[in-house]
Simulated scan of single mutants.
Amino acid sequence: MNRSSRQGPVVAMLLATTLSSHAASPVGDPAAGAAAFRMCASCHQVGPSAHSVFGPQLNGVIGRRAGTLADYAYSPAMRKSGIVWNEQTLARFLRDPGDTVPGTKMRLWGIGDERKIANLLAYLRQYPPVK
């Protein structure tokens, strides 16, 4: 058995491990998400009295069509994006808002820490739409 034939199974195993770790997103911790949300709170609100200010309020954001809150003036790009916010689309947007929705008004460079994104999503899941 030559060296390259011995490396094949090892390379395949490493590749499978890498792919599966990227496919599964971390579960997230709502308490850590609350701490991480502090950086968002200058523009966004959540909770029973939340309203849109510099950014849209985020109650019920998961499952909501992007650019549809009546009390916020979204960018034309966001209104036309066709995105429905779910775990994957929100994570992608948090990683790189400008790449996800070119022309967005979001003023965030992006979050590169997957754990922080998972924590933020866990925190936001706690806030259904306010009736």
Rank of each mutant, 00 (worst) to 15 (best):
N2P: 14
N2C: 08
R3Y: 12
S5E: 14
R6S: 00
Q7N: 11
V10H: 00
V10Y: 04
V11P: 02
V11W: 07
M13Y: 11
M13T: 15
L15V: 14
L15C: 11
A16I: 14
L19P: 06
L19W: 04
S20C: 11
S20F: 11
S21P: 01
S25Y: 10
S25C: 00
V27S: 13
V27D: 10
D29S: 14
D29G: 10
P30I: 10
P30V: 07
A31L: 12
A31W: 01
G33T: 02
G33Y: 07
G33I: 04
A34G: 06
R38F: 00
M39V: 09
A41G: 06
A41S: 15
S42K: 09
S42D: 06
S42G: 08
S42N: 09
S42W: 02
C43T: 03
C43F: 05
G47D: 07
G47Y: 10
P48V: 11
S49F: 08
A50W: 06
A50R: 07
A50L: 03
S52M: 08
S52Q: 03
V53L: 09
V53I: 06
V53P: 00
G55C: 01
P56T: 12
Q57L: 04
L58T: 03
G60P: 12
G60V: 03
G60S: 05
G60Y: 13
V61Q: 07
I62C: 12
I62D: 02
G63Y: 03
G63I: 05
G63H: 01
R65Y: 00
R65P: 02
G67P: 08
T68D: 08
T68C: 06
T68H: 09
T68A: 11
L69F: 01
A70R: 11
A70C: 01
D71W: 12
D71F: 05
A73T: 13
S75F: 05
S75A: 15
P76W: 03
P76L: 07
A77P: 11
A77K: 08
M78N: 05
R79G: 12
R79A: 15
K80R: 15
S81I: 04
S81P: 13
S81K: 13
S81A: 13
S81L: 12
I83C: 09
I83R: 10
W85I: 14
N86D: 15
E87Q: 15
A91L: 09
A91G: 13
R92A: 15
R92G: 07
F93M: 13
L94H: 00
L94P: 00
R95P: 01
D96G: 10
D96L: 05
P97S: 11
P97N: 10
G98A: 11
G98E: 10
D99N: 15
T100F: 09
V101L: 00
G103F: 06
G103Y: 03
G103M: 01
G103H: 09
T104N: 10
T104G: 09
K105L: 09
K105H: 12
M106S: 04
M106L: 08
M106P: 09
M106Q: 12
L108M: 15
W109K: 08
W109M: 07
G110M: 00
I111P: 05
G112R: 11
D113R: 10
D113W: 06
K116Y: 00
I117Y: 05
I117M: 02
N119W: 01
L120G: 02
L121I: 15
A122I: 07
Y123M: 06
R125A: 04
Y127C: 04
Y127W: 15
P128E: 10
P129R: 14
P129M: 10
V130M: 12
V130I: 12
K131C: 00
K131T: 13
